[in-house]
């Protein structure tokens, strides 16, 4: 993969995917920083290792499954205690919008 240079529009697109509202100065600065970091990361892009299986798990011996036993959840007051905008029974969010 050729060296990447992130344009402001690409930075904004990635920020939108990640739901990061960025000020214009941040877009400019991140564009520079990401270009430099990805430039370094690109050193591995050329390695001819397509036949090597990717490592997905550092400990492949873990337990995949748990038995299906139910336990009561947390009391509702506790679940709602950290909510920024709670109602008596739930978590309020602003309208979904257009």
């Amino acid at each position: 993969m050729a060296d990447v240079e992130l344009t402001p529009d690409e930075v904004r697109h990635v920020a939108a995917l990640a739901r990061l509202g960025l000020a214009d100065e941040e877009v400019e600065r991140l564009g520079r920083e990401l270009t430099s970091i990805l430039g370094h990361v690109n050193t591995i892009a050329q390695l001819p290792i397509a036949d090597v299986p990717p490592t997905k798990h550092a400990n492949p011996h873990g337990d995949a499954l748990r038995p299906d036993a139910a336990r009561p959840g947390a009391p509702r007051e506790e679940a709602l205690a950290n909510a920024p905008d709670p109602t008596p029974e739930g978590f309020r969010v602003p309208p979904i919008g257009a």
Binding site: R19, G21, N82, A83, P84, D85, F91, V93, P94, P95, I96, G97, A98
Partner: peptide, 14 residues
């Protein structure tokens, strides 16, 4: 939504 900081805005995405 469920905990931590929230900065209010007119819709969810904002």
């Amino acid at each position: 939504v469920r905990y931590g900081l929230r900065v209010d805005a007119p819709d969810v995405r904002a």
